[in-house]
C-alpha cells in the first residue's frame, strides 16, 4: 500500500511516519505542503510537529495549505486519513474531525509514555489493536487538551467516534492518567464515516520494540488491513 505523509514547514515527525510505514513493508512518500494532488496514494498521514510555527493556533494555517485541499477531497471520497499530534490539530482545524485541542491544563509541555484504552475496535484504525491490554505510546505536546461542546461530546460518544482514551496501565480511565485535561480523557477521535481519525499520542514513535514499545504498529496495521480489504472488494 502507498501512504502519503504530508510535510509542512516545521513538521518534525514526517520521517518517523515514513519509517513506521516502511517497517511494515509498505511504501511511504513525503508530500510537500504546496502539492495540489495526492497522486496515487491509498492513505494519508498528517504528521506531528509545529506546522507554520504553530502561529495563530496549532494547525490553523496548515489547514489552508494547497495539500490540505487535496486531503479534504480525498477524505470526502472516503480515503483513509490519520492525523498524529499536530496532524490531529490540523484535521480538527480543517473541520474533518470534531472538536479542538487547547493548551494542556497545567500549561506544561508533556513528553512521556502514556497508556491508551481503545473504545471502538470496529474501525480502519483500530481493528488490529489487541483487545486485552492498554497500549503504551509516547506523547509530546503542549496543546493536547481535547475540547468539544456538550452536544458534540454526546454525539461522538453515541456514535462510537471516540477511539482512544487516556488510561492507566491496567486500562482504567482515571483523572490521574489524563496528562492534559482532555474532556472524558479523550486522546483521539474519528469522523462519522470512520475514514478520518486523529490522536495526540505518537504511534509513529512506537513502531519497533527497540523504541521501548511497538504498540503503535497496530494502528498502521489496521489501516493496511482496511486498505487491503477495499482492494479485494474492488477486485471482486
Amino acid at each position: 500500500m502507498r501512504f502519503a505523509v504530508l510535510q509542512f514547514p516545521a513538521s518534525n515527525c514526517d520521517q518517523d511516519c515514513v519509517h513506521a510505514v516502511r517497517v511494515l513493508g509498505h511504501s511511504a512518500e513525503l508530500l510537500w505542503h504546496k502539492e495540489t494532488s495526492l497522486g496515487s496514494a491509498d492513505a494519508v498521514i498528517v504528521p506531528g510537529g509545529f506546522s507554520y510555527g504553530d502561529y495563530l493556533r496549532c494547525g490553523a494555517i496548515a489547514r489552508f495549505s494547497p495539500v490540505m485541499q487535496a486531503v479534504k477531497r480525498f477524505a470526502d471520497e472516503g480515503g483513509l486519513v490519520l492525523g498524529i499530534c499536530n496532524g490531529f490539530q490540523i484535521l480538527c482545524e480543517a473541520g474533518l474531525l470534531p472538536g479542538a485541542l487547547v493548551r494542556n491544563r497545567d500549561l506544561q509541555f508533556h513528553c512521556e509514555q502514556i497508556y491508551l484504552r481503545t473504545d471502538n475496535f470496529s474501525t480502519p484504525f483500530t481493528s488490529r489493536t489487541p483487545r486485552d491490554k492498554a497500549i503504551k505510546l509516547p506523547i509530546a505536546h503542549g496543546e493536547g487538551c481535547y475540547f468539544a461542546d456538550p452536544a458534540t461530546l454526546a454525539s461522538i460518544q453515541a456514535k462510537g467516534q471516540v477511539l482512544w482514551r487516556y488510561c492507566d496501565a491496567s486500562g482504567a480511565v482515571t483523572d490521574a492518567a489524563n496528562p492534559n485535561g482532555s474532556l472524558l480523557n479523550i486522546a483521539g477521535v474519528a469522523n462519522e464515516r470512520f475514514n478520518v481519525a486523529g490522536l495526540m499520542p505518537h504511534p509513529d514513535r512506537a513502531s519497533e520494540a527497540l523504541l521501548g514499545t511497538d504498540d503503535g504498529r497496530s494502528i498502521f496495521e489496521s489501516m493496511v488491513d482496511a486498505l487491503q480489504q477495499r482492494t479485494a472488494a474492488k477486485a471482486a
Binding site: V102, R103, R105, L107, C145, F147, D149, G181
Partner: peptide, 13 residues
C-alpha cells in the same frame, strides 16, 4: 477570547 466553557489555565494562572 476563549469561550467560557473552555478550560483557560492561562487566565487562571
Amino acid at each position: 477570547t476563549p469561550k467560557k466553557a473552555v478550560l483557560d489555565p492561562q487566565g487562571k494562572t
